[in-house]
């Protein structure tokens, strides 16, 4: 069963977390910025083994175009927000995944074959197979995460420096 457009629309309408948060910058510049940063931030996904291509060059070459706005809707509809926060900030339930998402090949590999390390309460990231999330949808999700701008640094937030 694949998520059909009308059903997706229905569930979005009743989604509890209506976020206006992510600045949807979109466009190539943000994507490239995210990727070059992303290479250094591979984190957990780097553990998935040698089969996964990593590195800036490969990542850039292999990143398909996606629609960030559609991606944001998907991100909320298929539950990424539940464990990673609505803008990918991370929480005890899942690591930070934006800004600067990991390179696309690692990203899609993680969705198809999550590492499965348990987070708080032993919750593990579910696999998002092609049957429920097409490659094009993964590209949209990626575009959304790549479009998320940086947060103010901790050093600039008075409440974090008292």
């Amino acid at each position: 069963m694949t998520p059909t457009a009308p059903r997706l629309k229905l569930s979005l309408a009743s989604l509890p977390l209506v976020t206006g948060a992510a600045a949807l910058i979109g466009g190539a510049a943000a994507l490239i910025g995210a990727l070059t940063g992303g290479a250094a931030l591979i984190g957990g996904a780097a553990l998935i083994g040698s089969a996964v291509p990593t590195g800036v060059a490969i990542a850039q070459a292999a990143t398909p175009a996606g629609n960030a706005q559609r991606g944001q809707h998907l991100y909320l509809a298929v539950g990424c927000y539940e464990c990673h926060g609505t803008t990918g900030t991370g929480a005890i339930t899942g690591p930070k995944i934006a800004p600067n998402p990991i390179p696309f090949p690692a990203f899609i590999y993680q969705l198809r074959h999550p590492l499965g390390a348990p987070s708080y309460g032993n919750i593990k990231m579910p696999a998002y197979g092609e049957a429920v999330l097409s490659d094009a949808q993964v590209a949209d999700l990626y575009a959304y995460l790549a479009s998320i701008g940086p947060s103010p640094p901790a050093s600039k937030i008075p409440l974090l420096n008292r």
Partner: peptide, 29 residues
């Protein structure tokens, strides 16, 4: 919220309806 995540996990395992996990778990509408 804990249950939203759990239902998401089981729907993921069954590879179906991953966009319907808010049903019966969220407090809205």
């Amino acid at each position: 919220h804990q249950e939203v995540m759990w239902v998401q996990v089981i729907a993921g395992e069954r590879q179906r309806g991953i966009d319907r996990c808010h049903l019966g778990t969220t407090i809205d509408d």
